[in-house]
Design a protein around this nucleic acid. Structure first.
Lengths: 239, 239
DNA sequence: GAAATAAGTTAGTATGTCCTAACTTTTCCC
DNA sequence: GGGAAAAGTTAGGACATACTAACTTATTTC
């Protein structure tokens, strides 16, 4: 490799390429850190052909980032997990910074962060985090991994699983689709909001919610992306 | 190309690759917008083998970004010049932002900007510029191209060319070497500083400068990177 | 103006990442 | 448990970018 390529390395971390970082992030997201990831699912997340994934996971396994058994999916090694979390930290700090410091709307931070995360040095990310007061979550409520590689992996309840009558505080919206985010924003279903399930139509029908003095109705597909911390004032989970 | 690659395109501008943007910037810098650039000089700036440049330059010419005549160097076309200035604007706005908003020292903004310039959208760059008050120069005093593609191309006098007795205001340091920048910082030779040439030793010897109540001596190699706007209070240029 | 030197090009190769087409293995279902 | 469907792999190729080695063109120098 040339001197120019050497120079393009990002200081403060291993010189993983952007595609490699994307693979690791995807595998982490699928396995939530622990479980195995299927070739097809990786391919779908990254919008690649399954054949391309087969080739790449072999190389990542050779580099010690993945444990790979042919025909049986992959798992992150400890080293792979650390790399994935470093990228995830960069992504989420950048998202938080764009929203806080530069006034980005929450539906557009993801796309920008998706590119910057590969180019930003750890120093930049740390300065961003310090400037906005060491945030613990990104604008969608996703937890930001710490520098030493730990993350809050609490599994929250989806709004689609909250029983009628139960209340909860929205902690996270687990989707980056700008349209969906804008719509939720209009309904003011945002991290921190308190919400009560008023009713639920049968056959996976619309869910009626109360939030403050507002009342609204959303479909289960949307609700499934809204994660809440249930409040212990009434019922528990749905059956 | 795959959907993933499509997605990685930066919105708000042509999807030029990072290497292509680097070539255009280098060619612009060599030709200062107008003149021709030699293959070898491009290669040296980018730390590439001349043969690699021959290949790339042909492709850029095919794309209409360069005018290329075999064995006779290249020139930017109007379209190439515009692309170069867009990248230069991104680079310099980012440098200014890193220094202003994130407290980066002036000797480290270049390296970070060198990577971010390829990943940042025009929207991000515009928000950065707006946030720090639409700067006109970067931390080294280099002019920031405007969105519509114009730049201040004033040619300033180098400190090495300023006559004994003449004064000037430092407008720019035309080098990105961190060590050099730190040294100049220690001497407090910074954009905006007023400086007088007190004496000049023969045979390209050290130049003695006065700045405020300070007096110091620098070599001509260093002085040649310090650009000044001469003040009309005493002598003119050195012959 | 011809030889020496400098500058630039082509040819052939490598690397990383992607693709499609064809094949193999695993899983599912009756 | 055997065949269909789903999942995954290999083979072979493309593309962008880089390299080295060998060659060609341009420039300098006497």
């Amino acid at each position: 490799m040339s001197a120019a390529r050497e120079e393009s390395r990002v200081p403060g971390r291993e010189p993983l390429t952007a595609p490699v970082e994307d693979y690791l992030k995807a595998i982490y997201a699928i396995g939530r850190g622990s479980g195995a990831a299927a070739t097809n699912e990786i391919a779908q997340r990254l919008a690649l052909a399954p054949a391309s994934v087969s080739g790449m996971v072999r190389r990542l396994a050779d580099q010690g980032l993945l444990a790979y058994e042919r025909y049986h999916g992959v798992k992150l090694t400890e080293s792979g997990r650390r790399a994935a979390l470093r990228t995830l930290r960069r992504h989420r700090v950048i998202e938080a910074y764009l929203a806080e410091a530069l006034g980005y709307p929450w539906d557009r931070v993801h796309e920008e962060a998706e590119r910057l995360e590969h180019a930003a040095s750890d120093e930049l990310v740390d300065r961003m985090a310090a400037t906005i007061g060491e945030p613990e979550v990104d604008p969608h409520g996703a937890p930001i991994p710490t520098k030493d590689g730990s993350v809050d992996e609490t599994e929250y309840t989806s709004l689609a699983d909250l029983a009628v009558g139960a209340s909860g505080v929205v902690v996270r919206v687990a989707d980056e689709d700008p349209e969906m985010l804008r719509y939720l924003g209009e309904l003011s279903i945002l991290p921190g909001k308190r919400i009560t399930v008023k009713s639920r139509a049968p056959y996976d029908g619309p869910i009626t919610l109360g939030s403050g003095r507002q009342e609204m109705s959303i479909g289960p597909a949307l609700a499934s992306h809204v994660l809440v911390a249930p409040l212990a004032d009434r019922a528990g989970k749905r059956g």
